[in-house]
Amino acid sequence: MADKDLKFPQLFLRLTISVTMLSAVADRFGFWGENSAWGNWENFEKYTQQLTFFLPEILSTFSAYTATFLEILFPLMLIFGFKTKIAAFGAGFLLLVFALSMSIALGIKAPLDYSVWVGSAAAFLLAIQKEYYFSIDTLIKKS
């Protein structure tokens, strides 16, 4: 498959990783209503404490804020194709940490049910692309 044949699948991958991560953020702020996993920030903090049981409470709370910030930053970077390689590696590592934490705290079934491993692998696959089509990166490179 020629690189030019990857344009739309690559864009689709960027967008799906982004929308999936932003959906999780929307959930913790209650935007999904009755279809929420957490439904509000308080429940998300409790869930984060469950996943980071090995950390002091203050660090667990800090990790909830940090994860949320990064789950907004990386998807926005991916959507616009700005510093795409960095954003993809960041998303991959963030999802990997999340998958490992879920596996340790909840068992292997939880991250499998939510496709967290797949999201991490997809982000790493995106990170190793030679060129990023339909992106700010490409526009900057051409100018």
Score class of each variant (00 low, 15 high):
Met1Trp: 13
Ala2Tyr: 14
Asp3His: 10
Asp5Thr: 07
Leu6Val: 00
Lys7Asn: 05
Pro9Glu: 15
Leu11Arg: 03
Leu11Ala: 13
Phe12Tyr: 09
Phe12Ser: 06
Phe12Thr: 05
Phe12Asn: 00
Leu13Glu: 09
Arg14Pro: 11
Leu15Arg: 06
Leu15Val: 05
Thr16Glu: 12
Ser18Trp: 00
Ser18Asp: 14
Val19Ala: 09
Thr20Asp: 13
Leu22Arg: 00
Leu22Lys: 00
Leu22Tyr: 03
Ala24Gly: 11
Ala24Phe: 12
Val25Ile: 13
Ala26His: 05
Ala26Arg: 02
Asp27Cys: 06
Phe29Ala: 01
Gly30Ile: 03
Phe31Ala: 15
Phe31Lys: 01
Phe31His: 04
Trp32Tyr: 10
Gly33Trp: 08
Glu34Cys: 00
Glu34Phe: 05
Asn35Met: 06
Asn35Gln: 12
Ser36Gln: 07
Asn40Thr: 08
Asn40Lys: 01
Phe44Tyr: 15
Phe44Glu: 15
Glu45Trp: 02
Glu45Ile: 14
Glu45Thr: 06
Gln49His: 14
Gln50Trp: 12
Gln50Glu: 13
Gln50Lys: 14
Leu51Thr: 06
Leu51Gly: 08
Leu51Ile: 09
Thr52Arg: 01
Phe53Trp: 06
Phe54Asn: 12
Leu55Pro: 06
Leu55His: 03
Pro56Ser: 04
Glu57Lys: 10
Glu57Ser: 14
Ile58Gly: 00
Thr61Cys: 00
Phe62Asn: 04
Phe62Pro: 01
Ala64Trp: 13
Ala67Leu: 02
Thr68Glu: 11
Thr68Leu: 02
Thr68Phe: 07
Thr68Asn: 04
Ile72Tyr: 06
Leu73His: 04
Leu73Asn: 06
Phe74Val: 04
Pro75Tyr: 00
Leu76His: 01
Leu76Ser: 06
Met77Asn: 11
Ile79Thr: 05
Ile79Arg: 11
Ile79Asp: 05
Phe80Gly: 14
Phe80Asn: 09
Gly81Tyr: 01
Lys83Asp: 04
Ala88Gly: 11
Ala91Lys: 07
Ala91Gln: 13
Ala91Pro: 12
Ala91Asn: 09
Gly92Asn: 09
Gly92Asp: 11
Val97Cys: 13
Val97Ser: 14
Val97Leu: 15
Phe98Glu: 12
Phe98Trp: 10
Ala99Met: 05
Ala99Leu: 08
Leu100Ser: 05
Leu100His: 07
Ser101Met: 10
Met102Glu: 15
Ala105Asp: 08
Leu106Gly: 01
Leu106Val: 01
Gly107Thr: 08
Ile108Thr: 13
Ile108Leu: 14
Lys109Ile: 13
Lys109Phe: 14
Pro111Ile: 01
Pro111Leu: 01
Leu112His: 02
Leu112Lys: 01
Asp113Ala: 08
Asp113Gln: 13
Tyr114Ser: 07
Val116Tyr: 00
Trp117Leu: 14
Trp117His: 11
Trp117Tyr: 15
Val118Lys: 03
Val118Trp: 04
Gly119Val: 00
Ser120Val: 01
Ser120Phe: 04
Ala121Glu: 14
Ala121Lys: 03
Ala123Arg: 00
Ala123Phe: 06
Phe124Gln: 09
Phe124Thr: 03
Leu126Arg: 04
Ala127Leu: 06
Gln129Asn: 13
Gln129Met: 09
Gln129Pro: 01
Lys130Pro: 04
Glu131Gly: 02
Glu131Cys: 00
Tyr132Val: 08
Tyr132Pro: 10
Tyr133Gly: 07
Phe134Ile: 04
Ser135Glu: 09
Ile136Gln: 11
Thr138Asn: 11
Thr138His: 09
Leu139Trp: 12
Leu139His: 02
Lys142Pro: 07
Lys142Cys: 08
Lys142Trp: 10
